[in-house]
Design a protein around this nucleic acid. Structure first.
Lengths: 156, 156
DNA sequence: GAATCATGTAACATGATAAGTATCGTGAAA
DNA sequence: TTTCACGATACTTATCATGTTACATGATTC
């Protein structure tokens, strides 16, 4: 099953926006993500509704960050893009009549619940600002300075 | 996206088989799962290849358990049905050229890896026999005796 | 105010994958 | 030899993120 990459993509965009002066257009962002401007607008609409970014039309318009990155976690972004189910596996029926099936589903859901709690905790513990700082630290450790420009010509 | 229910379904089937004398036909199993016999054969083929069940053709044929349930974990079943990806989210590109994207993916993958390790540990720690016993215990606690027959007429 | 730029939105196509279905072949038991 | 049950193939369906086209709306520039 193809994976939902909205969270990953939005984090990618937000980090670029953080080190970018002025608005970024959907067109520009789409090139970064190697996709279509409409996909960008569609996905970023969730971030706008949550107040993390804002958008302006017309000349000089585009997207800008509208929140304190220290106060927004990866989990917040996950939820802003729709908070899709984290897992690809699950039970077929919600409330099965069969007692065996209920027992099986209960056991599986226990395990999934634990894993989800861990994942939610991890995503909730990291702010966008921290993620940006850890990127900067990686750059220094790697011996090159990304400066303040876009970094998508960076060495592999 | 619709969730992969193969693990859940196979656990359901195996517990019924454990409390059932003689082979169970794909038709019979399909009714339990509210699906089609072909889907049953397709999914159970993985269990057969792994040696957890065996199948016989002709009169009196069907599926029987072929392994010690104490020695088969939920994780084993997950792998036998194809071991599909556990998560519904992930990164878009495997090895992005963009350094920011690599940093984002790395952070996400760290969190996912932890959650996956926990989930794998939980599924690996429970044997089918334990799952069957916990079902029996639930029955007793609920004040009714499922006996040795099929239990899918059990009270909700 | 006309042209241009950029977002907003609707509608439809695509891709991937589990699941559902129909059909025929094969082998075993009665 | 008839029936039963699995094995295998091919095709369809359902779902949903993603991709794409087209057009409307609003803001800036001239």
């Amino acid at each position: 099953m193809r994976k939902d990459s909205r969270l990953s993509r939005m984090l990618h965009v937000l980090l670029h926006m953080a080190r970018h002066d002025g608005p970024m257009t959907s067109e520009h962002i789409a090139k970064m993500l190697q996709t279509n401007p409409v996909v960008v607008r569609r996905t970023m609409a969730g971030l706008r509704d949550a107040g993390y970014v804002s958008s302006e039309k017309g000349h000089g318009g585009g997207w800008v960050i509208a929140a304190d990155l220290e106060k927004v976690s990866l989990l917040d972004i996950h939820r802003a893009v729709g908070g899709p189910s984290l897992f690809a596996i699950g039970a077929e029926h919600e409330n099965p009549a069969c007692a065996v099936e209920r027992a099986v589903n209960g056991a599986l859901e226990d395990a999934l619940r634990e894993a989800e709690a861990l994942l939610v905790a991890r995503l909730g513990a990291v702010s966008l600002a921290e993620l940006a700082r850890s990127f900067d630290a990686q750059c220094v450790a790697g011996g090159w300075n990304p400066g303040t420009g876009d970094a998508y010509g960076a060495p592999a």
